[in-house]
């Protein structure tokens, strides 16, 4: 039906993507966001190679310690090193957050644009959205676990199986707002003069969507992306909290924050690190999104 792959630019001397990159580079917030994001990603994925402690190793004599040289972030109630747990947790949280967000965003934008653009599909797709909005999430997840956990863990191994399940679970329960927001914007865009003009010169639907509609609905999509990543990280922790997530010895930022909350008064520093990590990741993605949106807006570009 509609082909959504990027149309190859017909090799002009200065492609628009070079322009986009120049504009993006000039955006201070975006650069800063990008740098922070890369630092976090490198930190959590490379850090464990350099750090001597294992995130699951229990040293019961060293429990509930404050920051020290041996444990810069302190230790938890079982004497596990918080820095190691932050890094291990970050791997899971960032992977889950990014993939689930991309899935939700992709699904949401696709359904939103299709519904907004093709009048005939609007009704059915929006009723589908209503249905998904209405489904109670917890029973839905329980059913998914029941049906797919064993087959998936047999097929790809228990940890990857759970990962796929969680990402899909978060993805398919959070695409609906994006879809509705995008559709609303597309409905309005569709009636604009430039679309009419493009149509009058015989632009095919696929190109119409990729060249004219998509760039113009990018800003709500970017906002959804930022909010979506925060949402996915938090939802993951809610899932583990309900016993629907990763095995209990598998740290994630959301779970670290949740576990630390009950020690809020005794060890307030313990909530600080996961809270900071989640906020920084979300903020950096937000600025990245801002930069990307500005860079892709031809009216701003070059100013």
């Amino acid at each position: 039906m509609t082909e959504l792959s990027n149309p190859q630019p017909a090799t002009p001397p200065r492609s628009q993507w070079v322009d986009v990159w120049h504009q993006f580079k000039a955006h201070k917030g975006a650069l800063l966001g990008g740098v922070i994001f890369i630092v976090i990603v490198l930190g959590v994925f490379i850090g464990p190679w350099l750090w001597p402690y294992d995130s699951q190793f229990i040293d019961i004599r060293a429990r509930n310690q404050g920051p020290s040289w041996a444990h810069p972030f302190g230790t938890d109630q079982l004497g596990r090193d918080t820095l190691a747990r932050m890094m291990a947790g970050g791997q899971t949280s960032i992977s889950v957050g990014l993939t689930a967000m991309l899935l939700a965003l992709g699904l949401g934008s696709f359904i939103g644009i299709t519904a907004g653009f093709f009048k005939r599909l609007d009704g059915p797709l929006m009723r589908l959205t209503d249905l998904f909005l209405a489904l109670p999430i917890l029973p839905l997840l329980l059913v998914m676990m029941l049906l797919f956990r064993e087959p998936l863990s047999a097929a790809v191994g228990p940890e990857r199986g759970i990962f796929i399940l969680i990402v899909v679970a978060i993805g398919i329960t959070s695409w609906m707002p994006t879809a509705r927001i995008v559709r609303g914007d597309v409905l309005a865009l569709k009636e604009r003069e430039f679309i009419l003009a493009a149509r009058s010169i015989g632009t095919p639907n696929s190109r119409m969507i990729t060249r004219h509609i998509l760039p113009n609905v990018l800003s709500p999509i970017m906002v959804s992306a930022t909010l979506g990543i925060a949402n996915a990280i938090i939802t993951e922790s809610a899932l583990s909290f309900l016993g629907l997530g990763f095995p209990p010895d598998f740290p994630t930022w959301g779970r670290l924050l949740n576990d630390a909350t009950q020690y809020l008064q005794d060890y307030p520093e313990r909530v600080f690190w996961p809270g900071l990590a989640i906020s920084l990741t979300v903020l950096s993605v937000n600025y990245l999104g801002d930069g990307l949106r500005d860079a892709l807006d031809p009216r701003i570009r070059g100013r």
Binding site: L227, T261, Q262, V282
Partner: peptide
């Protein structure tokens, strides 16, 4: 990109990334 905008972005994004299961007990304490 004014100071107001930056501060607003900063606060709202932090507000959104910190879930109620943490802010709730925090304000209680």
């Amino acid at each position: 990109y004014s100071v107001f905008d930056q501060a607003g972005t900063f606060i709202t994004m932090i507000g959104y990334s910190i879930p109620p299961f943490f802010t709730g007990p925090l304000v209680i304490v």
